[in-house]
Structures are given as C-alpha cells and as structure tokens.
Design a protein around this nucleic acid. Sequence first.
DNA 1: AGCGTATGCATTTTT
DNA 2: TGCATACGCT
Length: 669
Amino acid sequence: MSSPVPLHSLNPPQREAIYYLDGPLLVLAGAGSGKTRVITQKIAYLIQECGMNPANIAAITFTNKAAREMQERVGQLLQGGSTAGLTICTFHSLGVRILREEAKALGYKPKFSIFDSTDCYSIFADLSASVDKATIRSIQWLVSGWKNAMKSPDQAAAEAKSEIEVLAAKAYRDYAATLKAYQAVDFDDLILLPMQLFQEHPKIRDKWQNRLRYLLVDEYQDTNACQYQLLKLLTGPRAMFTAVGDDDQAIYGWRGADVENLRGLPRDYPNLKLIMLEQNYRSTARILQAANNVIGNNEKLFEKKLWSDLGHGEAIRGTVCRDNEHEAESVVMKLLADKFEKRSKFSDYAILYRSNHQARLFETHLRNNRVPYVMSGGTSFFEKSEIKDVIAYLRLLANQDDDPAFIRAVTTPKRGVGGTTLEALGTYAGERHISLFAAAFEEGFAQRVSHRQLEPLLQFCEFINRVEQRALREPAGEVLNDMLTAIGYEAWLYDHEETRAADSKWGNVREFSQWLAGKGEKDEKTLIDLTQTIALINMLDKQNEDSEFDAVQLSTLHAAKGLEYKNVFLVGVEEGILPHSSSVESGTVEEERRLMYVGITRARQHLHLSWCEKRKQGKEMYPCEPSRFIAEMGNDLRISGGKAAAEPDKATSKARFANLRNMLGSGES
DNA sequence: AGCGTATGCATTTTT
DNA sequence: TGCATACGCT
C-alpha cells in the first residue's frame, strides 16, 4: 500500500467520496486508486469535522490484515484524538461481537465455540460415515453455499436436484443440530445467525442500527448474499454507508461472493450516489493500458478506465519458454540480472501464479541460486496440529459442550482414555442429549464402564474444572503455562515426534502461548475471554510484520490482491492454467480474466509474463498454448524466446506472436 | 493384515 | 508443499 498522503493531495473524486454524507454511497475504486486512503480519511473526517462519536462508526473489511492496516492508518490520522469505541474489524468478527452479546435470543451461551472448516469436516464425516472423502468435501461445500445463500435445510432439501444435493441437504439438517448441541458455530454462521437475528428481532436490530450509525465497507465486490443482507439490516432505512469496491477485481465468485450485490445496490437504494476513482497511483501508463485492454473484454457493469501520470515506463516483456523447468530457471535468472542492473532489493520482486503447485519449481530454483523468498499462503498457524491441540483445551475451558474439543483434549496427550471408553461415553451422552463432559459425571454412565475406564476420565474432567476456575481470574499466560506443564505436552511431543519436528512444534506452542499471554496482559483479558476470539485471528498477520527481511515474494494471484510490487513476474500464462481449464469448462472465464487483471495491476514499474511451449505433468510432456489473455493485452508487449541470456530473436518472436494472434482470433467467443 | 514409505497429483481459500 | 493412494516389507 502507498504511504499516507496529506489531505490536500487528494484528487477531486476522492475528496467527494470523503465528504459525501447525504445518503448511501458506492465508490468504484480501481486498482491502486487509493481506496484505503478514502476510507481512512472519511473516518477521520466523520470524527474530527462532523463531531461524530467514534462508537457510532464501523468499518468492515474481509481480512484481519486489512482491518489492522486500516486501524493503523486511522490512528496516524487522528494522532492524539480519540478513537475510543471505533469499530474497524472483519465481517466475521463483527458477527462474533453481535452473537456474543445477543446469544440468548438465539438459544446460545455467550461462550459458544467457533469451529473451523476442519472441525466442521469431521462433523460431516461422522454424520455420513462410509462415504468417501471427496463426497464429504462436496457436501460440506454445498452446505456452506446454502448458508451463504441464506437457504434453510428445508429449502435446500426441496430444491435439491442431484443425488449429492439430496444427500447434502439431509446432512445439512443434522449438521446444524449437531453444531447447536455443541454450542458451536461455523464461519458461515457468524454472518448468517446475526442476519437471522435481526430479521426476527426488530428490537435487537434497532439497537444495533442505533449503535452503528455510519458503516464503511471495504472490498464490497467480495460480499456474498448473506453479508449483503446483514449490511442492509444493519444500515436500515437511513442507509448511511459508504461501500468501496471494484467489480473488476471480483475473484471470489467461486466462494459465494456475488458481484450481483454491486448491481443490486442501485436497485435497492435508488438514491445511491456513485463515485469512480480512476486515477491510479501505482503503475505506469503502459501497464494500465494492458490491464484496461484485457478487462475490456469482460461484460462491464460500470465503465471504468484507469489512468496514471507516472509516465509510460518500461516495456512489458513476455518470455516463451521451452518447458516449465526452463521457465523457472529463466525467471530466476532474469530476476537476478534485473536486480543486479537496478541495484534493487529482493523484496522489489514478486512471482505470481495461478495455483499453488506452480510455486514448487520456482522455489527450487530460487533456493539453488540462494535467493531468499517468502511464500504467501500455506498452512496457517492455527491449522497446525500442535496449535489445534492447545486450542482444543482452551475451547473446552470456555465451553464444556464442545465435544470435538473434549475428544481432542482428552486423547492428547494419551492419558488412558481410549476408543472404547469414549464410545460408551458418546452413546450415553447421545441417549441423554447431554455433552460428553457432562455425561462423564453421571451415575448412569459410571455403571456402564469399569473403574479403570472411569478413573482417568474423571481425573481429566476435574482437572479441566480446576483450570477453568483459575482461568476466570488469574493472568492468562500463567494459567496456560501451568496447564501445559500439568498435561506434560512438551514431553509428549518429544516422545512422539522426531526431535527436529518436536522442536519446531514446541516452539510454535511457546510462541502461541507467549502471544496469548501478551494479548491477555495488554487487553486485560482472561484466558477464557481470549479463547472467544482466537478462531478468527490469523497469526500470519504477525508473521508479515516480522518478515520485513529482504526476500522475493511468491504468491498466488488470489493472495496478491491488494498488494503491489515494483517488479512482477506473472508466470504460467497459458490456456488451461490462466484461464484455468475448469473455469473454461464451467464458463467462468470472466473471473479468470479479472484474475489476470489483478495480476497485471500488481506491478508498479515492470511487468514480465512467461508461458511455456511444453509442460511436464507427471512424467509426460504436454504441449501448451499461450493464454488468450496475452493477445488481449494488445501489442505493446516485447516477446522473446526463453534462452536466459540471449538477445531476443526479433524475427521469430514477431512471427510467433502473429501466429499466436491468428490462433486466438478464431477461437474466441 | 497392517504399517510405513514411495510416488503421484493438484484451482483459487480473506474467515 | 501436503495429501492420498498404492505397493512393499515385515
């Protein structure tokens, strides 16, 4: 992101967007047009100039990272001024906040658990045993889609067409009941439940409408139907909001995000004001021209043309490579040559690709050349098994109905509670409709198992009770450390893993516990308070702060949205990869084109594309064609063969390009 | 039979 | 990289 800019340097549409308060406002902000600046300045304006109470303003983002960045920038703008009560958070954390406060109205305890997708997967797996994994995954996928589309289990069942949909609709009902029994919600519920709550309880809705009087929504094109509905209910008839988005950067359609929400906005709010931010402060004119050319092939909602006064800039280059191995080698060589020539930093370079597995070859070649790199994505900190182990304990402390947490905690580390005991406990709990934890204490259950089975189980439950008592009062860090010692987690790790793996895992646990302890101290929160929010926090944010060391960035196109780099290598620009073959089949090439657009507009000064003539897949080589998007970029593109050091052979590359255009000219729809 | 390694294979993944 | 499947070893 660009650095904060003094107010006088705002351009007229930016200024208009900030000062406009007469009604609902939609800001169509092109890539690099300063949308974050508009949102943050508007918050500052509302507080400082309009005298609005910060507690009545909420800015909603999609990622923790975006929220944090916005917090920081607002903090800088309002130095000394008060931001007390100001809400800047993600959709999901706003949902949590609403649910914690209004849990009773929905039949939930305020200390409900939040299940991540792995937890939810195992519920579906238990529900429909003897079904293969792929099917379970599609069931989970379908149910999530229904929730985002606000379909109830009944509706889903009624509308189910295929066999798998019928199966999924059946699972949906049981799944919802199971979650409720565990006093747990999934990520989709964090939006769906507040929305339903507002629909069914006008009083509660009014209360929140009164509290959050002005709403600012970032990345509006990424909202799904349910989020849109929640926003509508939250803003109410006053409709005081600013939505900021870019239909050309809508790349999450496959996850339920619906650009229709952008189209629907003028319909639902006839007095909607529309402002376009078209001046780009990031890229050279050449890069923007190519981006405009590509995106011009999409059916447009709103006509928008980016421009910049940063000069024409370097030529966009394209490299045809013999195969993917050669592509990786050539990109790394070109990167190093460019770095040497310009005396730039590694962190000025990004290698962007369509899908994760493409990164692998680039990683090897970067490593071979001793080039430092960081990769976005990968398993998030909270998905790591050792962290999930610890979190299971925390979840159980806060919510003893959380059966999955109970099972994980009671069996990790092993303490003499095995499968048979748990099965008996599960059966008993199922008959009585109580949680595993509660069942363990019942006389009726005690009669069904032996003393040897019961004893360790009760010891565990009593241990949890004791820790819970402490967790309500004493400092979070201390309680957590004592608990880890008491369960012997470190020793267990070193018993079950190789020393190196155990070192890393225990290191992660310690990092996590220190981080929690620090957070507990800073916000004066107990361990149980903290547990309520950790499901939503991503420690990658923290890693980003730390990792300001000089390294080449490797990233998927999706993960690169919102970021910018001086030099971008966009690799694997081939038919079947970008656009991805399955998108071509499912007729969603427009979203792939937006992905290409996002990729192009990440570059500030230098854009380099590459594609292969052949690609190794398995042990066979398959022929490839350059992406249709190459031709769509226009002819301001300097294409050369793949030989790393050689001068481009102008004659052949021209001929090749002509061929390419002929080839693509006919096949386009 | 069961476990452990080898090999093959991938859409994208904010919460 | 990470997961799933298959094969081979014990």
